[in-house]
């Protein structure tokens, strides 16, 4: 199966600031990706270049086998919902939906109307009079009902409460099940989507630091706590990502291939062992006390993932 999108050595510089630094990865067909990373890590820039809204400084981008720039065949199959999307000020909700219906070949009007009801969006209201959450809902409706074979959602939930976000996740999952397509979710709310996403792309300071199956990551990262010497010993079985000390006790986050044997070993060392969440892994991989990415560990992690 050929990938839906391929990015090779993509670099983007804005007046001397490197937003993306030789980024390479590919997106396989009909999967849900989580594009994770801190603010300013380069997520939005990456999606803008993939959708030809922005230009690369160097490197290759291929979407549906072709370059997306001014490529109608490619662009008509992409939908990019961004948090900062603006709408012409003379349009009401129903106009925006009518415009999207004109543009997307796969638009499902009935589904769109159901979503309007689900999100309780007033169809006659002008976009200028929508609340932040309503604007987010509108973007989500366009993104879902477009049924675009490749859809990007760039932090689509701003201003949405927990209930509305759950509606989004549920409808996304249900519709994806019936109409499989490639979806890229860029989000901060990692815990909320960790069961949804199949593949994780973690970007930090313009570089991909993790490109792995979500399932493979589960159980790969654990937090052990106990006497420093025991923690030291256990930490040697994997890569230590983080540690805090309290007197003679340490708590460390360790990444490795942990099976039942390692769990028993931790227990026999007198250590408390807890699996860490995807969110914790992301936090540990993208924060360092000095504010820099942990070069050694991430390089190791990346090459390990690449070898998979």
């Amino acid at each position: 199966m050929s990938p839906v999108a391929t990015v090779t050595d993509l670099t983007k510089q804005y007046r001397g600031v490197t937003a993306l630094d030789r980024v390479s990865f590919s997106l396989a067909e009909n999967r849900i990706y989580g594009l994770l990373g801190r603010n300013g890590a380069g997520k939005t820039t990456l999606m803008q270049i993939l959708t030809a809204q922005n230009f690369a400084s160097s490197g290759e981008v291929t979407v549906f086998g072709q370059h997306p720039y001014e490529n109608e065949r490619v662009l008509s199959r992409i939908c990019f919902i961004k948090e900062s999307q603006t709408y012409p000020s003379n349009l009401a909700v129903r106009h925006v939906l009518r415009a999207a219906r004109l543009v997307y070949p796969g638009w499902d009007e009935e589904f769109a109307q159901r979503l309007v009801d689900d999100f309780q969006l007033p169809p006659q209201r002008n976009v200028r009079k929508l609340s932040r959450g309503m604007l987010s809902s509108l973007g989500i409706i366009v993104g879902l009902a477009s049924r675009a074979p490749l859809a990007f959602f760039d932090e689509p939930y701003l201003g949405l409460d927990a209930v509305a976000r759950q509606i989004f996740y549920e409808r996304l999952l249900a519709d994806y099940t019936e109409h499989p397509r490639t979806i890229v979710l860029s989000t901060h709310l990692i815990d909320e989507v960790s069961d949804l996403i199949e593949h994780v792309l973690l970007i930090d300071q313009g570089r991909i630091v993790l490109d792995a199956e979500a399932e493979a990551l589960r159980g790969q990262v654990v937090t052990v706590a106990g006497p420093v010497a025991a923690v030291d010993e256990f930490a040697r079985t994997g890569a230590e990502l983080h540690r805090v000390l309290l007197g003679g006790t340490a708590r460390a986050t360790v990444r490795g291939d942990f099976g039942a044997a390692e769990h028993n070993r931790a227990r026999s060392l007198g250590l408390g062992l807890e699996p860490a969440s995807l969110q914790e892994l992301v936090v540990r991989l993208t924060t360092q006390p000095n504010g820099h990415a942990p070069a050694a560990t991430t390089a190791g992690a990346t090459s390990k993932e690449a070898a998979r």
Partner: peptide
């Protein structure tokens, strides 16, 4: 599979 995915709110592939 789809019913399970919807019930547990997980990816159908999983």
């Amino acid at each position: 599979t789809n019913e399970l995915a919807a019930f547990h709110r997980i990816n159908p592939a999983t």
